[in-house]
């Protein structure tokens, strides 16, 4: 494993599930840190600086979404929620709290490993180096929105808008097809790496979160627009 192993913080209140997932994730080559509630999870996050968080939304008496919200106040670290319920409200609430992806129990470890690798892919892309030559201007002016795939940033004026891994990757896909529509299945495959999923919630919630960061009025999007019944399109304004 060594120093290169991906460090995963596993926040799960069920001791037996936690133990089994720890064993299985270590077999897959991950470094695993454990916590059983929100307080312990936050402490472990500060102490161990994990690369990925794996958070159960229902942590006994505490709510995994609180942990996600607190981490999101200062970090864009990839977060995957685990849930014993695949119901829309549960998953959507977890995603709206700021999670990048979700997986429903019973967890297939190979699938979980694939999800962890998928949400971390941005980290592997070069962030530093040569000045960005691929700047996309979404809106002009001193307070305009600019975006650089190579640079790895979204800026409003000169301020960087913090994006999570999946928000960034969604923006990358859409900006590479600026003005063109991408369907939800296309986005699911290209951004999240799902080859066989029809779960629109992931796309829809991430689009909503991205709009809040991107648009002046998220209820009347100018840049990230819905193509009814088909998908989404990113467009620049003049």
């Amino acid at each position: 494993m060594g120093a290169m192993a991906v460090k995963t913080l596993l926040v799960e209140d069920d001791d037996r599930i936690r133990a089994a997932l720890r064993l299985a994730l270590r077999e897959e080559g991950f470094d695993v840190v454990e916590a059983c509630d929100v307080a312990e999870g936050l402490a472990a996050y500060e102490r161990d600086q994990p690369d990925v968080l794996l958070v159960d939304v229902m942590l006994g008496n505490s709510d995994g979404r609180d942990l996600i919200r607190q981490v999101r106040t200062h970090s864009q670290v990839p977060i995957i929620i685990t849930s014993a319920r695949g119901d829309t409200t549960d998953v959507v609430a977890g995603l709206e709290a700021g999670a990048d992806d979700y997986i429903v129990k019973p967890i297939v470890v190979k699938e979980l490993a694939a999800r962890i690798r998928a949400v971390r892919r941005r980290e592997a892309a070069p962030l530093q180096g040569e000045p960005a030559t691929d700047v996309v201007v979404l809106s002009p002016g001193p307070e305009g929105l600019t975006f650089s795939v190579g640079g790895g940033w979204l800026r409003r004026g000169s301020d960087e808008v913090p994006l999570t891994a999946m928000e960034f990757r969604l923006l990358v896909e859409l900006s590479q097809h600026l003005g063109q529509m991408l369907s939800r299945p296309q986005l699911l495959e290209r951004v999240w790496g799902y080859r066989s999923s029809n779960d629109d919630r992931l796309v829809d919630v991430t689009v909503r979160r991205l709009r809040v960061k991107l648009e002046r009025d998220a209820s009347q999007p100018q840049h990230l627009v819905t193509v009814r019944g088909l998908g989404y399109r990113l467009q620049a304004t003049t």
């Binding site: 069920d14 599930i17 089994a20 997932l21 299985a24 129990k105 019973p106 470890v109």
Partner: peptide
């Protein structure tokens, strides 16, 4: 049933 099944599935995969 999902919780014990998660333990079982993870253990089986090990």
């Amino acid at each position: 049933l999902r919780s014990p099944l998660t333990t079982m599935a993870a253990s089986a995969s090990v």
